Computed example of a mutant assay.
Amino acid sequence: MHDLPSTGARSEPAPRAPRGTAPRVLVAGASPDRLNRNAVLRSFVVEGFAEVLGRENAREARVELAARAVEQWRPDLVVSFGSCMPDESDYSALRRACDRTGAILAFWLHDDPYEFDFHYRAARVADFLFSNDRWAALHMDHPRAAHLPLAASPTAHFRQRPARRRFDVFFCGVAFENRKHVVSDLAETLRRVNTLVTGSDWPTKSLPFAQDRHLSNEEVADGCAASLLVLNLGRSLHFANDRYRLDPSTPGPRTFEAAMAGAAQAYFATGLEICEYYEPGSEVFLFDSPRDFASLLDSLLAEPDRAAAVGLAAQRRTLRDHTYARRAERILRTCLGFEPDAGGADRPAASVDAGA
């Protein structure tokens, strides 16, 4: 994390004393929603700030309306959330609006390290810069860069475990090459139980338990809750990661979302940062070979209550530590020096996309 030679951000943004009981926070898109398959995550971030600050103090705006929203609503903090890789990612108008109104401008990038080479677009205008990935954050050229993992939404992802299980093993995600290799290695085990692997581009002929079908965020949570065991396989597809060729270190959002749904997860361990979020054996299962996975699955088929207990423990841990409200508290402390009241307001957020 190093200083840039030139930046449009304030050299030393001083935390502002919040007016009244709570500051105002605007969560803006970092790229056009039509180009961002994960745009739904922004609503979860707004929900988190609304829970902490109250509905009246948390709003959202699409990237193309963000500067106008800042001028109209005059927030204390703007959090630009998403991807800055698209060519449309020009934040000069947003930076000028923040300068005119005195708002602090923070970015929370959600696709690191896969788009790391484009983080400069945010770094040159941001007062604070957050990355979803720890290893990427350590390499960022910004004096106030920090690591902030993604999280889960109680509203969108919390599930009660159904009485009847639909799948023995469940996985949903795009069929990136590293995932296809792992699933192919596990195929002998997956074929002998009730397995569903689904997502874009899965080879259904060679993997008969796979479907080339995208599921909604809600459907994924339902599938996780109704499964004995959920496979957790990170992705490895680098759109713009040539500078350092960084490997991902932090678990992605699906880890927290599945846990919020009460799933017992089998996490393919390419690193041990997962252990900072969930306790191995009691909140998550780890494996690193087909033999380990087969042994784990056989033990859970014989003792399904053990899987249910791990899923429930993971859900409790997520509600305590890994919601977007907890991440919002971290951003508020870092950017504004604001200490939220315990409990939060637990209310949904308004939107300024329509010029409210």
Rank of each mutant, 00 (worst) to 15 (best):
D3I: 09
S11K: 15
R19T: 12
T21P: 10
P32R: 11
L35A: 07
L41Q: 02
G48S: 07
E51Q: 11
V52E: 15
G54I: 13
E60W: 14
E60H: 14
E60T: 13
E60N: 12
R68G: 14
E71R: 15
E71V: 15
R74Y: 02
R74E: 08
D76T: 12
S80M: 11
M85W: 05
P86F: 03
E88I: 03
D90R: 15
R95I: 01
F107E: 10
W108F: 07
P113H: 04
D117M: 13
R124A: 12
R124M: 15
V125E: 09
V125H: 07
F128G: 07
R134I: 06
A136H: 06
A137C: 13
P143Q: 13
A146S: 15
H147P: 08
L148Y: 09
T155C: 08
R165K: 13
F171M: 00
G173I: 02
V174P: 03
R179F: 00
K180H: 01
V182H: 01
V182E: 00
L196S: 04
T198E: 06
S200L: 03
T204M: 03
K205Q: 06
K205F: 03
A210Q: 00
R213D: 01
H214Q: 01
V220S: 02
V220L: 02
A221V: 05
C224L: 04
S227M: 04
L229I: 08
L229G: 09
L233M: 00
R235Q: 02
A240P: 01
L246I: 12
P248A: 06
R254M: 05
A258G: 06
A259K: 13
A263D: 07
A264G: 10
A264E: 08
F268S: 07
F268K: 05
A269S: 04
T270F: 04
Y278H: 11
V284R: 02
S289N: 07
D292T: 12
A294H: 13
A294F: 14
L296C: 01
D298S: 12
S299V: 05
L300Q: 02
A302V: 03
P304H: 09
A309L: 14
A309R: 15
G311I: 02
R320N: 14
R320W: 13
R320G: 13
D321Y: 11
H322P: 14
Y324L: 08
T334E: 15
A342C: 14
G344Q: 15
P348V: 09
V352Q: 14
D353C: 14
D353I: 12
A354I: 11
G355D: 14
